[in-house]
Every structure is written in structure tokens, then in C-alpha cells.
Amino acid sequence: MSLRSALAPLRQAVRVTPRRAFGSSASRQSESLFVHRDTDYNNPNIKFEFTPENLKEAQKIIDRYPPQYKKAACMPILDLGQRQNGGWTSISVMNAVAKLLEMPKMRVYEVATFYTMYNREPVATNFVQLCTTTPCQLGGCGSTKILETIESHLNVHPGQTTKDGKFTLIEVECLGACSNAPMMQINDDFYEDLTPETTIQVLQALSKGERPKPGPQSGRRTSENSAGLTTLTGPPPKPGQFNLPEFQ
């Protein structure tokens, strides 16, 4: 998750000082731990078992791979576990996956700590991942503004969960929707082309338990030109339309 915090120093760097800067980039360390510490909400004694439906689903995933490479199913099944466990992967989830796939537990821990989308700490029902990578920072009104909006609206800072337990906010790196910058992902949905107003609308709807329409909030379709199409405006050519008559 080192990448997620990438922008914090950038924002600091704006304060230029007359002194010569020694470090051109800060030694950036993730704030999440890469070792497990037993806590009352996350320890191996907490039971976790896949539900029968999920077990069926898991079996389907496992069947995609040759039987001796059962462990290839590790990532999708961890995801399955994370979903069942309310959006985060506890140590018990990892252990359950190891057991299911007959792999040493450490191999699962390695995978779960490597990928940032396995949340190893609990998250709220609405997991707000705001993209703050450069295109999003520059596009539209800029993600910095969105971040400030969310921070003041929810009264949390990145990495924190609201008091009512409805939202967890984090900053993430590019989610691949740069053309609709700025954007955020909440659970499995992308909310794009954000402005402070639409952001608040989305958050308010979510806190009421509704599911606002994912996608661009500006009303445009996907990432089409917001000023209207400039090309491909006519109907698509029919098969053979431009062929010589004898070949039509």
C-alpha cells in the first residue's frame, strides 16, 4: 500500500523552501503492517468457514485448474473469503483458504500481503477508494478537491472509518478510469467525473442505504466526448459496403 500514500509527500512538496533539499523523494513506507498481530477482532481463534454457496463457488474456481495446481485458485478464493467476511481478509480467512487449497498457510499470507486489494483490517460497509494519481489529480476539478470534499463531508481522513461505521476512506493509485477523472471506487462500483456536489450526492445516497447509479456522474455516456461526438457519428458501415460492386 505504499503506492496509495504516494501523493501525501507530493502535496507537501508544494511548500518550497529556499534550503537545498537533500532528499528528492522521501523514504516512503506503508502504514499498514506486514506482520500479523493478534487482536480481539482478528486472531486465528475466530472461526471462519465458507458458506455452502461459497464453497460451491470455490469448487467452480478450483475446477478451472489442473488438480495438482489447486493453489492457482488462491487469489479468487481469497476474494471470495473477503467478500463473505464483510470486505476484509482476516487471518482466519487466510487460514481457511490455505486449508481449502491444501497449501502451506504462509503461501496464502504471502499472496494476501502482496496485493493491496486484500484488506487485512476491517473496513466499513462503504469502502471509498479515491484515486489520487496524477490524471485524476489534474482531470476535471481535480482529485485534491474531491478528497477535501469527502474529508469534510465525512469528517475522516484517509485511512479512517466514520464514527457511524458507514464509510472507510482511503487514497489509491490509478484505477484505470483516468478518462473520467476524477473518480472513486466504492465497493465494486466506479463513480466517475466527480465534482464536489456529485460526490456529496453519492455519499448521501449511500448513507441512506441507496445505491446511486455507478459510472459518470456528469451525465455523459461512459467516456464519450463530453462535447458530443466528433467522429463515428454516422451509422456503422454494413458488411461489404465499400467493396467494388462485383464483390458486394
Partner: peptide, 14 residues
Amino acid sequence: TGRGNDLQIGMYIE
């Protein structure tokens, strides 16, 4: 566990 600058050697659990 971890990756990149955060990669570390260990057993994850104690």
C-alpha cells in the same frame, strides 16, 4: 510478506 519497499522476510504470524 508485503512487496516493494515493504517486502520483508518472516512468518507473518508470530
